[in-house]
């Protein structure tokens, strides 16, 4: 099976590989796996006070399509608002990377990772608000 040029480009020059401090309050971490193929994807976002994503990093062990899907996702996430990021669909990744049907699950994994990272960040914000409300009462 031939990879598209875009997949090869992300695979050979992955954007935003790395790690953010998963304990930081302004960082959301999503880690998801595809046990059929033994792939694992970690995607992290750092969110500013205005709800914009300042930075995004990923680390993926898996096939070229999984790496390209998460690399592309971090490019889209940077500068986006959290609410817009939550709207990213795997089908957009499929389209951009021209993924064949057998590799669609890689884009699903990336969407799941984005959702998990946002969910983690939102939980931290809810906890922070609850904690500050408790300390003021």
């Amino acid at each position: 099976m031939a990879y598209s040029d875009k997949v090869l480009d992300h695979y050979q020059n992955p954007r935003n590989v790395g790690t953010l401090d998963k304990n930081a309050l302004d960082v959301g971490t999503g880690v998801v796996g595809a046990p059929e193929c033994g792939d694992v994807m970690k995607l992290q976002i750092k969110v500013g006070d205005d709800g914009r994503i300042l930075d995004a990093k990923f680390k993926t062990y898996g096939c070229g399509s999984a790496i390209a899907s998460s690399s592309l996702a971090t490019e889209w996430l940077k500068g986006a608002s959290v609410d817009d990021a939550a709207q990213i669909k795997n089908t957009q990744i499929v389209e951009e990377l021209a993924l064949p049907p057998v590799k669609i699950h890689c884009s699903v994994l990336a969407e799941d990772a984005i959702k998990a990272a946002i969910e983690d960040w939102r939980k931290k914000q809810a906890a922070r608000i609850a904690a500050s409300a408790a300390s003021h009462s």
Partner: peptide
């Protein structure tokens, strides 16, 4: 039961 424990998956990244 395909969604695995995040801590296990983080260990899997370390291992890889």
């Amino acid at each position: 039961h395909k969604s695995l424990d995040p801590d296990f998956l983080l260990d899997a990244i370390d291992l890889a």
